[in-house]
């Protein structure tokens, strides 16, 4: 067992874990933050995407020990004081989700994308979420949701 300390959504957690534990299992099973989902075991689907030290990362492809000392943000930590993040809001406004399973990871990727590229083209959005699979929406409304958020974050409506 190894002791790690991870700051998740602004709260510090110190836990003894098996070194083999994946970060996504640490988040879901040890901390009980089940908003981050698992959709595959080959690092393709992106359902498990979180922000680790501010960058989008597939939490199924990190060991929890690798996150020792890191700041992690999950979908549960995105809204502040009850206000949805503009990307969350965009997904709601534009019907960017159906079953919702890919949504937390998709939203985290969208947040990461807009942080690096506040005014992306449609093509840049599509490439920006190439590491996230959605089986319901055909991506159409996800692109619109991220466009909505980009506009809102730049002071638009």
């Amino acid at each position: 067992m190894t002791e790690i300390t991870v700051n998740v959504n602004g709260k510090s957690y110190t836990r003894e874990i098996e070194p083999r534990m994946l970060l996504v299992h640490f988040i879901r099973d040890v901390l009980g933050l089940t908003g981050t989902n698992i959709g595959c075991e080959t690092s393709v689907c992106g359902a498990c995407t979180i922000l680790m030290d501010g960058q989008a990362v597939k939490s199924c492809t990190q060991l929890a020990v690798q996150a020792d000392g890191s700041d992690v943000t999950t979908i549960e930590g995105l809204a502040s004081n009850g206000d949805l993040h503009p990307v969350q809001e965009g997904f709601w406004e534009k019907h960017g989700l159906q079953c919702g399973y890919c949504t937390p990871g998709m939203i985290m990727s969208g947040v990461d994308l807009l942080k690096n590229n506040p005014n992306p083209t449609e093509d840049e959005i599509r490439h920006g979420i190439e590491g996230n699979l959605c089986r319901c929406t055909g991506y159409h409304n996800i692109v619109k949701a991220i466009q909505y958020a980009a506009e809102k974050m730049q002071g638009g409506n």
Binding site: T34, T74, I75, E76, L78, Q88, F91, W92, G100, P104
Partner: peptide, 9 residues
Amino acid sequence: DPRLITGQA
């Protein structure tokens, strides 16, 4: 949607 976009579902 509110519970789905906040990870509460």
